[in-house]
Amino acid sequence: MDSFFSVLDATIRVATPLVLAALAGLFSERSGIVDLALEGKMLAAAFAAACVAYMMQSPWAGLAAGMAAGVMVALLHGIVSIGYNGNQLISGVALNMMVSGLTPVLALAWFQQGGRTPTLDDAARFRSIELPFADTIAASAPLKALFGHNILVYLAVLVIVVVSWVVYKSRFGLRLRAAGENPHAADAAGINVKLVRYLAQVISGALCGVAGAYLVLAQTGAFIQDMTAGKGYLALAALIFGKWRPWAAVSGCLLFAFTDAIQIRLQGSELPLIGSIPDAFIQAIPYVLTVVLLAGFMGRAVAPKAIGVPFVKSR
């Protein structure tokens, strides 16, 4: 039973940044902009969070910096995709490459530690929150799995609730969905489609910012080159897996995080009947699942209709 809860614990830890990034992607893609740039947004945020948290000795300052960096990359993606009607796929690939190149160069120039940032002190990180009866919690696996996390994990839960309300029950959500489904109809209804799409980018950048900051401030404690390691793409996969719906995308993230959590536990251990499974196979599960899903073997994934198409006013 304890092992179940420790897997649950690990799942929640791994899922948090995925959930935040997937919801970030949801805003972008629902507004009609393909978001391959999730990876770059997160990586830039991780770097900024590491630098600022180190200099200011404050995780909150790090978080703010991470969000700002995420928004900056998002705005670049916006200027290219919305302002200049550029190819959104290419823009995403290019931004990811740029961030992947720029961050270690800056890290080396500023900290001389071979492309990484100095390790943060405890004071500059997010730690598990101190609840009353802390000892009881630490001692009990189920309680630890549910209540033993840092503040960002609970923030992410709140974000899920807020996002699903905003997307389905708010004025902005209606306009967001209209911009992604039929921007010409939105335009005819007097809505500034480009503005809605820019706002969606800003939100996407901010959420990716939290996700990237989480990686540094709650997990590694330092920026490491290419530390997102495909998490942005994984979040995108989860978003597609969830057919662009918030709760379903979150389930996708939890599923992917779960495979990651059991992979660590299964490492080297022999399973009955199958024998030992190479790590590589378990690592590949989310990617294979996404391919299988996209191939329509698990129900059709219907993307927002106008996704990827630059909005050019017709008459």
């Binding site: 969905r177 209209a178 489904e181 010409h184 939105a186 335009d187």
Partner: peptide, 8 residues
């Protein structure tokens, strides 16, 4: 060409 969102 109607300016309506089909899914709404």
């Amino acid at each position: 060409h109607f300016m309506l969102v089909d899914t709404f």
